[in-house]
Nucleic acid binder design. Structure first.
Lengths: 197, 197
DNA sequence: CTTTTTTCTTACCATACATCAAGGTGTCCA
DNA sequence: TGGACACCTTGATGTATGGTAAGAAAAAAG
């Protein structure tokens, strides 16, 4: 199943159906059951995963054994350890499937082919990187500046779908607080008659 | 003064002296006195600044009037609001000069010319973006996972020069703690006979 | 369905870090 | 050269968030 990916590339990167047909040679898909580990820390990340259906997360584990979620990716998003793939270095983090997930596997070969084939793909790729930087910078700023409560409010505004699909303790981990604290934050918000959804 | 920039481009991006000569047309330099505001929040960032000499910082200011430092840039580093420049959007943050600073002004025109002129420049540019992402991701991870003390230790290890040139309250701001807390963290480290430098 | 496991909540207490306030040290420059 | 100003330190106290533990609720498994 690579439909969404094809549509995505057509809309965002100007890849025609003919071009996609040629590129598809080096594409494959894979389905991971819920909970499946996809990238282990220390491994070199060989692929970027485009999520057709399902939900992935990347995370680190600290010395105390605590998980810290770096990123989620649901339908129409990419997941990868970019640094690991690009610099061919062991990955700093783990990737696994939060739900059963169907992905398109994208390797360096695909990127090269697509870049040579289409200028707009090259530009699209840069745009992806620029967007990633912007998103990370905003997150750093929030972690520096905002309270647990406003980080949570920001999260549910940015990712309303995640809020419904992901267990709360993962959201807490993404926000940099404990599940207990998030529970308390939500209780406080409820008091102030805040209703999500 | 654009010597360092020329050397930098030669070494890192494979730009020859002849190429540089051609590109230099669209370059200019500027010197900012200590404390000078270079980019105001809300302005569109038109340039990337290559620091020849001196030190810049970018930061946000929250509703409470508190500053949060996003990044430092000393000799041989770039400073910019990439997102603002790339997406032509108002900047989210401020940039100013921590010391008197001499910069090379780089605009989109330069990037375009250099990219057309040299494939290796194009690649170099992507590498810059990839590096930026890696650095930001590590920072997010530290903010999620590490205590004030270990964030500080990490900082002085990564940026020993900054530690000497930048007032402590700015380091505290970068780390996401108050100057008072940083002072106490240092006191504790001194007790454990930790000696920087 | 019933059982088992995971997730969420709540209460109590602990702690890291913030805030406020004051005093000390250095640096700049009039 | 002396005082204004920026920076750093320290102490007393406050607060947001963490840790632990237990039970409730929900979800997954059998």
């Amino acid at each position: 199943m690579i439909q969404k990916f094809q549509t995505y590339l057509k809309e965002k990167a100007g890849i025609t159906d003919e071009q996609f047909y040629l590129l598809a040679e080096v594409l494959s898909t894979k389905t991971f059951p819920k909970g499946q580990l996809i990238l282990n820390k220390g491994e070199v990340c060989k692929h970027s995963f485009f999520v057709e259906q399902g939900l992935l997360r990347s995370y680190t584990i600290d010395e105390g054994g605590k998980e810290h979620i770096i990123q989620f990716a649901s339908e129409g998003w990419f997941m990868s350890d970019r640094s690991s793939a690009y610099f061919n270095q062991p990955s700093d983090f783990f990737i696994d499937a939060v739900e059963e997930t169907n992905v398109v596997l994208i390797d360096q070969d695909f990127i090269k082919r697509a870049s040579t084939m289409s200028l707009s793909f090259l530009q699209f790729n840069e745009k992806l990187l620029q967007n990633h930087i912007r998103q990370l910078q905003k997150r750093v700023n929030f972690l520096l500046a905002a309270s647990a409560e406003s980080r949570y409010l920001n999260f549910i505004q940015l990712y309303p779908d995640m809020t419904l699909r992901v267990p709360q303790w993962m959201i807490a981990s993404y926000l940099g607080i404990t599940p207990e604290s998030l529970s308390r934050v939500r209780k406080e918000l409820a008091k102030k008659n805040f209703t999500p959804r």
